[in-house]
């Protein structure tokens, strides 16, 4: 028999260090992500950079969501319903590449992260499933 949507979604919680962008996250992060979209014009990027707090206050985001942006804490932003392709507009505004920004979520230094990628990236060994530990 085909998997139900409940079984389908439950499996996503079993992947170490990963937040799959489910409907639940999408709903929670709606305004955070829409704010990110607004940074797709140079005018808005300038306004945001000039006064981040004031710019954020124009959006119906929670205080926790605003704080993740001010802190550039991307793991926390994912927990608040952010999606990486939306959040990319923030680090692009900061002039960071995906390589530089993504590394900040791993707890590694930028140098170590870059070195890991050049050496072939992070092995999936032990990181496939929390329950199976493989």
């Amino acid at each position: 028999m085909k998997q139900t949507i409940h079984e389908y979604l439950a499996e996503f919680e079993d992947i170490p260090g990963t937040r799959v962008y489910t409907a639940q996250r999408g709903r929670k992060g709606y305004w955070l992500n829409q704010f990110c979209m607004s940074l797709m014009t140079p005018e808005n990027r300038e306004r945001f950079k000039a006064d981040e707090r004031t710019y954020l206050d124009e959006w119906a985001m929670t205080e926790a969501q605003k704080q993740t942006v001010l802190d550039r804490d991307y793991n926390a932003a994912l927990d608040e319903g952010g999606n990486i392709y939306f959040l990319a507009k923030i680090f692009s505004t900061d002039g960071l590449s995906f390589l530089q920004a993504v590394g900040t979520m791993t707890g590694m230094t930028p140098e170590d992260y870059q070195a890991m990628m050049i050496a072939g990236g992070r092995s999936p060994e032990g990181l496939r499933s929390i329950k199976d530990g493989n």
Binding site: F98, V102, G103, S123
Partner: peptide, 17 residues
């Protein structure tokens, strides 16, 4: 192909897959 751009597991690459 393989890549992960988010969370502590970011940087994952699976050449065999």
């Amino acid at each position: 192909m393989s890549h992960q751009l988010q969370g502590p597991r970011a940087g994952l690459i699976n050449q065999d897959f």
